[in-house]
Design a protein around this nucleic acid. Sequence first.
DNA 1: CCTAAACAATTGACTTCATCAACTATTGAG
DNA 2: CTCAATAGTTGATGAAGTCAATTGTTTAGG
Lengths: 163, 163
Amino acid sequence: MRGMNGSGEQLERKTKPGSGPGQAGPEGDLPRQAWTLLFELMHTHMRNFPALAAELDLSPVQAHVLRQLGEGPLAMSTLAAYLSCDASNVTGLVDRMEARGLVVRRSSEQDRRVKMLVLTEDGAALRERLLERIFEPPDAICGLPEEDLCALRDIMRRALGAQ
Amino acid sequence: MRGMNGSGEQLERKTKPGSGPGQAGPEGDLPRQAWTLLFELMHTHMRNFPALAAELDLSPVQAHVLRQLGEGPLAMSTLAAYLSCDASNVTGLVDRMEARGLVVRRSSEQDRRVKMLVLTEDGAALRERLLERIFEPPDAICGLPEEDLCALRDIMRRALGAQ
DNA sequence: CCTAAACAATTGACTTCATCAACTATTGAG
DNA sequence: CTCAATAGTTGATGAAGTCAATTGTTTAGG
């Protein structure tokens, strides 16, 4: 029971008087404060993402791919861009997922160089089960009062909309 | 410029009438709505964490370890628990970081089985540079009005405090 | 005390993820 | 037609992950 260190203390030290080069009012840098806490929450929650994927016999990256593949066919190169990784990496990744019957490669008709990835029926079904688990909110969120949840939702909509 | 797919549409479909087994009021499940948006924002931002770590010649996991190691010495097994991975994995991880002079192993005096990890001076300096980058808030956050940032900070404090 | 279970770290075999360099096939521009 | 650019694959290599087995070191029971 020694988990949950009080790392907030460590972070607040960045706002010590006279430290910041520019902004930093009397109580420090507000965007950074909010972001740091947000990061803390997400980081804690993401620690068990590999275990969550493993429950469905997926590696973390395969789970990530399955999630991205919901909007419809996707070129391998586009997937590589989404994953911010090399195209050659995607080849092996898709090899394994295709061998398990989750996706298929379909040659594009407009451009015979590109291969489009399509979810199989099994892949789509597994994706639904995955999303169900991914978007299950953690206790820290469920425990918030309704007004906080509404405010949070609205703030996030503004943040995502205005970028 | 085809990034930022409108995957919100996909997610909202989960609240279609008659689907949920339990809660789901007229406008759906509020915690899930808030969480889904939060997840979207964080996920988008986290995509370039590997690149951020690479700027400091760190792998993503090494960056993660460096971040965890700020509170003081840590047993290898404790680190394995933090990382949610096997202890044997930590051996190689620490081998590489020790070879680069970021950490050292110190045998514990109370229990000669355990080895404590301690940041070197170089390791601590690199950690500061890393944290500076990690906690730099993204544009989506910086663009929010001050009242939203205050509300967000306070909500996150409640969420993290009450778990 | 002495033996046996439990634990911390390591090693070795193996898989997946990731990069880079080289290659093939295809497209598109001049 | 030729040449540069692009999409995907292959091969070599290394990091990160798992599991099974091993070595020291505590700790608990008889």
